[in-house]
Write a protein that binds this DNA or RNA. Structure first.
Length: 554
DNA sequence: GTATTCTGG
DNA sequence: TTCTACCAGAATACG
């Protein structure tokens, strides 16, 4: 399958106009085959073809076999473009797209080429793809990846196609108003910064900013840090520690936050709204994150702000398609810690989940040796940071840094944690040992992550691999679970012929655009399908909410 | 094109 | 002594 290759831009490929039916008619020749559920469709990055073909009125049916996803499972850390795969595994260099279409902004589109050239390219493309399939098939079998490949990744690709096509509505007027008020605030802050600095400079240039703060104004004293390249470091962590020295520092942090919100979200998102349906269509990449997670680009809808007041205004601008719909958000509660409880089989941690306790409060009670009802908010906050640390492969230094306490104290806390949760410690050790022996770790469904640096003599490099040995199975299992839930939910929505659309995935959360009259049926079913996607030895809890915007649905 | 920073889970 | 918590993408500056 070969069309104009514009990754992430499929929505801007026009539906063929009525007076230019040649391409349209040609594609219809393949409709019966493409829509047949008994014929396997093999391709490289099939989601792209799916989305394009949908625009030609073709609803491609599985089974699907995507060579890009096959390689993603075989070598999750590598890249998976077809030219690279052909060169690596077939020792063959396909006709490059640049040779064919030119490069840069003068690049042609496939429909502008003489048919003979397209024909050669397309045939080669199909040939290479089939050869790759034949090469990968026995490897998938040998590495126990067949189930993950056929039952999860390939079915998911179609689900992602549906989600991308559905898109999400945004309140462009609200964002336009936001833009104006942000601009005013930014200008005001800018003036104040210039007054404090006694000069004008580009606040957005870390180089200039560092020179102003550390050379001209002499802030920071002995705490000044440099980046790899020898510049002054001016990141949030550094500046926060300097905030008490001079009020310019907080102004700079505020300025940073506002310009970030304005340029990345408020001004950028409306420009990406599709003219045809007035909706925002992200593109999910299924083969980028080495742990098995998805990623989202063009725009990235997995990092829409929520943590700050101003940021939440942006989330409010994500709305249902009309007044008859609501947004439904459903998220896995503490999924990664539950997976840790499952893998480690730690009795104490499992008990907390089985009793439905607040996991951070319960951790605090154990670590600080107090009854749960005497856990202070500060103890809970610390325990929350510890729990995050556990998932990431904790170090005394890292914990000390994040809790702003001495390293000795952090080390004591970690030791106390492992006394209370001994099986967690055992699990972490065994994960590292497993990695040392086989040079990979795996998720509950057998998704692998290779850690070829695990036996490195370089402590830094080895340490990184060791933390990954702990984190990758957990993060990856969470990805496995939500992927299964998405497939099951998509299937159910289709079977029941419901108008509810799954529109967003944010790692542990799914967002749906739901007709109000379907809410009663859809909400409990989604909860059930998420809970039961892949049962663990601890219960799974789902947080559900609805509202007339994404923020309200939380 | 690389570095830095900031947004999310 | 060093430097460290995991996974991503986008905007901006700058060589």
């Amino acid at each position: 399958m070969s069309f104009c290759y514009l990754p992430g831009e499929a929505y801007y490929i026009p539906v063929p106009p009525q007076d230019e039916e040649a391409a349209f008619d040609l594609v219809q020749e393949f409709k019966e085959v493409l829509e047949s559920p008994s014929i396997t469709k093999i391709g490289q990055n099939i989601k792209y073809d799916l989305v394009v073909l949908q625009r030609y009125g073709i609803d491609v049916q599985g089974p699907l076999y995507d060579t890009m996803l096959a390689h993603y499972l075989l070598e999750p850390d590598m890249r998976h473009n077809m030219d690279l795969l052909a060169e690596t595994y077939l020792n063959y260099s396909p006709i490059s797209i640049e040779t064919l279409l030119g490069k840069g902004k003068h690049q042609l589109t496939m429909d502008k080429l003489p048919p003979l050239q397209v024909y050669e390219y397309a045939c080669e493309d199909a040939d290479v793809t089939l050869q790759l399939k034949n090469y990968f098939d026995p490897l998938l079998e040998k590495q126990g990846l067949k189930r993950l490949f056929h039952d999860v990744e390939n079915p998911l690709l179609a689900v992602l196609g549906h989600m991308e096509r559905a898109g999400v509505s945004i309140d462009a007027e609200a964002l336009a108003e936001s833009s104006i008020s942000l601009e005013t605030s930014i200008k005001e802050i800018e003036q104040k910064i210039f007054e404090h600095a006694g000069m004008e400079f580009n606040i957005g240039s870390p180089k200039q900013l560092g020179e102003v703060l550390f050379d001209k104004m002499q802030l920071g004293g002995s705490k000044i840090k440099k980046t790899k390249t020898g510049q002054y470091a001016t990141g949030e962590e550094i500046l926060s520690k300097l905030a008490f020295e001079h009020e310019i520092v907080q102004l700079i942090l505020d300025h940073r936050q506002l310009t970030k919100l304005k340029s990345t979200y408020v001004d950028a998102l409306p420009q990406l709204v599709c003219a045809e349906d007035n909706r925002l269509h992200t593109s999910y990449n299924q083969a980028v994150a080495a742990t098995g997670r998805l990623s989202s680009t063009n725009p990235n809808l997995q990092n829409i702000p929520i943590r700050t007041e101003k940021g939440r205004e942006i989330r409010k601008a994500f709305v249902p398609r009309d007044e008859n719909h609501v947004l439904l958000s459903a998220d896995y509660s503490q999924i990664e810690l539950r997976i840790m409880a499952h893998f480690s089989n730690d009795a104490t941690m499992k008990e907390a989940f089985q009793k439905g306790q607040d996991i951070h409060a319960s951790t605090a009670a154990k670590v600080f040796h107090v009854p749960v009802d005497q856990v202070t908010s500060d103890m809970r906050r610390k325990a929350k940071t510890i729990n995050f640390g556990i998932i990431y492969g904790i170090s005394a230094f890292g914990l000390a840094e994040r809790l702003a306490i001495p390293r000795r104290e952090a080390a004591d806390i970690i030791e106390a944690y492992f006394v209370e949760f001994p099986a967690v410690k055992q699990y972490m050790d065994s994960a590292i040992n497993q990695a040392r022996e086989q040079e990979y770790v795996e998720t509950l469904l057998g998704r692998r992550r290779y850690l070829r640096d695990i036996n490195s003599r370089n402590q830094n490099i080895r340490g990184y691999a060791e933390r990954n040995a702990i984190n990758a199975p957990i993060q990856g299992t969470a990805a496995d679970i939500i992927k299964i839930a998405m497939i099951n939910i998509d299937q159910w929505l289709r079977d029941e012929k419901l108008a509810t659309r799954m529109i967003l995935q944010v790692h542990d959360e799914l967002v749906f655009d739901v007709p109000k009259e379907e809410l009663e049926i859809v909400q409990p079913k989604i909860e059930e399908l998420m809970k039961t996607a892949l049962p663990l030895s601890v219960p799974m809890e789902i947080g559900l909410g609805t509202g007339d915007n994404w923020l309200a649905a939380h």
